[in-house]
Each structure stands twice: as C-alpha cells, then as structure tokens.
C-alpha cells in the first residue's frame, strides 16, 4: 500500500501550549512545505516523523506512512530519510563508503560496489568514490548527501532547510534535482523552510505557521 505520508489530526504541544496542528496527506512524489519563522516549531514536526521528538514535547494524533502507523516505531525501522542544510557526510569515510552507508543489506560485495559507482555517475561524480568528503565543493557534497539518502530507499523524505547554505546559482539546480528525484522515486516529501522560493519550486501544498 503506498498512499504517502499522512498526518491524522497531529498536534504538538510543549508545557500545555499548542505549538502546531497539522492534518494533511502528502501523496507519493509530492511535496508539502511547512513555512514559518524560527522558533515556530516547524522542526519538531520533522522530529516527530523521524521518531526523535525530545521528551519535553507531547504529540497527539497519528503519523501514517504508506499505511503503517509510525507511532512508537524505532527510528531505524521507519525508512524516513532526512537532508539538513549541511550535507553531514561522515568525515572519516570516503565518498563511496558514505554512499554505501545507507544501502539496504544483502547482495554481493561487487554488486554493492556497482550500485554505488552507478549512483556516483548518476549525480555527475563518477570516479569520486575514493575522495575525502572534505575535498568536495558545496554542491558536490549536497548531491552526495541526497544520493546517500536515496540509496537507502526511503519511504519518505524530510528536508530541513536543505538549500539555505547553497550559493544562489546552485540552489535552483539542487531544488530541481531533489524534487525531481523524489517524484521519480514516488517518495512523499515534507519540507521545512523559511525561503518562499523553496515553496514555489516545490509546487505542492504549503502550510504557514506563525
């Protein structure tokens, strides 16, 4: 069953104060944008989906991913990928091993190598496998981070202000890449941002918090 990411009457509060309430469905391949100033609690919704909501917050309602209720499920079992404004490549691993990090188990070693090499070629970084992530440019690192998440075959993708640290020129390119890939993979996307242009590029529903 793949009906995307659904928020059934979800409300998050802190100290008895309601932070935000969402009731929405993100169909596969589409983007829901959550806009609001910092401190409006938009990132806590990401935490709720990820499954690492700090203990100070209280959530009611259900988050349902492709028919499965996520409540109480372990972080690792949710298959929810996330991209932050920093690419957060693991600095002690080379680029190829970073990509291999999220590959689901199984398959022969040579097949896994081939998958990673193909993924590198796919984002225009063929031959970059042995590189130290610290030597990549901002745009290259962002692409590797995206590909690392996609290789783990996520059932949903979360974006936490993902383009805010990129140069303006790169930003459009990255938006196109991320949203395009999500559409092809039919992955529902939840994006948190305060950049109006992000919401326009995403072209889906927008929820504004204040």
């Amino acid at each position: 069953m793949s009906d995307g990411l659904r928020f059934d009457d979800v409300a998050i509060s802190r100290d008895e104060r309601l932070l935000l309430a969402v009731d929405a469905r993100i169909p596969p391949g589409e983007v829901l944008t959550l806009m609001g100033p910092s401190g409006s609690g938009k990132s806590t919704l990401l935490s709720l989906v990820m499954g690492d909501l700090p203990a100070a917050f209280r959530a009611t309602g259900r988050v349902v991913l492709n028919g499965t209720d996520l409540t109480g499920l372990d972080v690792a079992a949710r298959h929810v990928g996330i991209l932050y404004q920093d690419p957060l490549l693991f600095p002690h691993l080379d680029v190829a091993t970073n990509l291999a990090f999220g590959l689901p188990r199984g398959g022969r070693r040579a097949d896994r190598r081939a998958t990673v090499d193909a993924a590198l070629a796919d984002i225009g970084l063929a031959g970059f496998g042995a590189r130290d992530p610290a030597t990549l440019s901002g745009g290259q690192a962002a692409r590797v981070a995206l590909m690392r998440t996609l290789l783990s075959r996520p059932a949903a993708l979360l974006l936490d202000e993902p383009f805010s640290k990129l140069d303006t020129g790169l930003r459009d390119q990255m938006r196109e890449l991320v949203f395009g890939r999500a559409r092809v993979a039919r992955v529902p996307v939840l994006m948190v941002t305060h950049d109006e242009a992000d919401a326009q590029a995403a072209g889906g529903q927008v929820i504004r918090l204040d």
């Binding site: 690792a76 999220g102 690392r148 998440t149």
Partner: peptide
C-alpha cells in the same frame, strides 16, 4: 557533531 550524525545514520536504517 554526534547529534546530527546519529540522526542521519539512524534514518539510514542503523540501530542506535
């Protein structure tokens, strides 16, 4: 940078 790294690694399917 343990917090974000853990979030990424766990979202990629690894246990704690």
């Amino acid at each position: 940078d343990a917090g974000p790294r853990m979030a990424i690694a766990r979202s990629l399917g690894q246990g704690r």
